[in-house]
Design a protein around this nucleic acid. Structure first.
Lengths: 159, 159
DNA sequence: TTGTGTGCAAAAGCTTTGCATGTTG
DNA sequence: CAACATGCAAAGCTTTTGCACACAA
């Protein structure tokens, strides 16, 4: 996931909070401090994460949140496209911030779990064509390539 | 998933059992009747299924198998490419038989859960190119398109 | 005969739910 | 102040594990 400088980050967080506000208003959801805190912490992260990891992270930052709220807020954020949810083969949902970053797909190492990102315009072409042919209104997709990376450290960190 | 006539099916089952035997021998795994029964029932199915569904199905056919064996055997079958495992967004692994059927990707209806299949050669091109660029040895992939199908019955069967 | 595979049930891991309390609108 | 969100813990669901017995090699 792309790293960004601190100034840009603050600006970005202001932006995504606005987007989140609009989403909450539009659906008559309440604007609670927990929801904004979770959004903020997610946008300070630079990696993929899971719900439990985020919960631990919030606890470590001395936020008083519960797992229930973490899961609830993640779903809200996914619904307004501020966060993307992935299932990288395992039975554990992974998330990542997605506003202001380029749409991309993933390459996952089956040995060490390392995740790389890539973009390819042909994915969009496939979506358009298949939607047409099969009369589907394609809203989103997930393309994961699995394989073995060639990092020296890879074999040693098998999960 | 493609339907096939009964004669072809019997022939196919003979074939996949041979392939499974070779895989078991090569890895010094034992050839148990349970393993072959599970393989056979999977190849009689024409749809995607989950582990619990297969377990229930086996029970209904009066096989005496346990969940543990179903999960164990599914893993063996995935390892020798006779069965493919999918995660269609939900926290529930889905499987399908994969020998003798064309490699394909999936289009999943987010309302009714309906799964369609499609093939597109560009997926292979993307795999090759990204493997090269990112120095990954890509072994497999998963491409899922999510959207809304236009079946009349769709809205009514929301899960 | 030896050790892997099995069935069964219990445990584990991720996610959701119920309930009493707190807080937003 | 009414309804919704929260924290906490318990329950739910899928998958894995432990153990005694069965059976393939």
């Amino acid at each position: 996931m792309a790293f960004i400088v601190e100034d840009k980050l603050k600006e970005l967080i202001v932006q995504v909070k606005k987007i989140f506000s609009i989403h909450l208003e539009k659906n008559s959801y309440r604007k609670t401090p927990e929801r904004y805190s979770i959004l903020e912490e997610i946008y300070k992260k630079n990696d993929h994460f899971d719900a439990e990891g985020l919960y631990i992270h919030m606890k470590n930052q001395n936020y008083r949140v519960s797992r229930a709220t973490v899961y609830n807020t993640l779903e809200l954020l996914v619904n307004c496209d501020l966060v993307t949810k992935h299932q990288f083969g395992k039975n554990l949902a992974q998330y990542e911030k997605s506003y202001g970053f380029r749409q991309h797909d993933h390459l996952i190492c089956i040995d060490c779990g390392d995740v790389l990102e890539f973009c390819d315009p042909r994915v969009q072409q496939i979506k358009n064509m298949m939607g047409d042919i099969l009369s589907f209104e394609v809203t989103h997709h997930s393309l994961n390539l699995y394989g073995k990376c060639k990092r020296v450290a890879c074999e040693g960190t098998k999960r």
